[in-house]
């Protein structure tokens, strides 16, 4: 069926999806920050009474920084996708979205490596419990962001390639950026300041 011979859909409000994404990202960000705040609070309590939070050398900064770099690269590819959608450049948009998703999968893979490398059991200590809660929450957020990206990709399959599609990609990108900011928080509070 030739879709080009059919009428275009009625235009809708262009900002709706963006505003929705903005609010959803905000709510998720607050939940995440709340977890990080509790993490820092418990770590501080442990230090006050002279306990070690993590044993020396149990958390390596290298893999964590590699994940941060991967996610920073994904920020660029996401914006590439947004720009492609705005200029109605379908091949580049698919390529950019695919690369972003690939970076997402890479981060998940790196997290798997970190979990194996750390070798902490969840019931080892309060620190281990918090470590898994905070990083697990981030992984959940990343998975949601990846699903949003996949949805944006599917929406680009066919049909009118207009501003509405660019808005959807932009909305997904916004959530992706919020996810990267959350990881930056994890990187700093969990891996850098330990």
């Amino acid at each position: 069926m030739k879709t080009t011979s059919l009428p275009s859909p009625v235009p809708t409000r262009p900002r709706t999806v963006l505003i929705g994404s903005l609010l959803a990202s905000s709510a998720t960000f607050i939940a995440f920050c709340s977890l990080v705040a509790l993490y820092v609070r418990h770590r501080q309590q442990a230090r006050i009474v002279g306990q070690d939070w993590f044993t020396e050398g149990s958390l390596q900064l290298g893999p964590a920084s590699m994940m941060l770099m991967t996610l920073l690269l994904s920020v660029v590819t996401v914006q590439w996708a947004v720009q492609s959608a705005k200029t109605e450049d379908r091949p580049h948009q698919f390529m950019a979205l695919g690369t972003t998703l690939l970076f997402g999968v890479a981060v998940l893979n790196q997290f798997w490596f970190v979990y194996q490398d750390v070798g902490l059991a969840i019931d080892d200590s309060k620190a281990a419990l918090f470590f898994y809660v905070v990083t697990g929450a981030f992984i959940a957020m990343l998975v949601v962001a990846m699903i949003a990206m996949i949805i944006a990709t599917v929406r680009s399959l066919a049909g009118t390639f207009g501003k509405e599609l660019a808005n959807i990609v932009q909305a997904s990108a916004f959530f992706w950026h919020a996810t990267v900011v959350c990881y930056a928080l994890v990187w700093y509070t969990v891996f850098v300041t330990k």
Partner: peptide, 8 residues
């Protein structure tokens, strides 16, 4: 996607 693919 299908809801918005065309106006038909």
């Amino acid at each position: 996607w299908a809801d918005r693919v065309t106006g038909d």
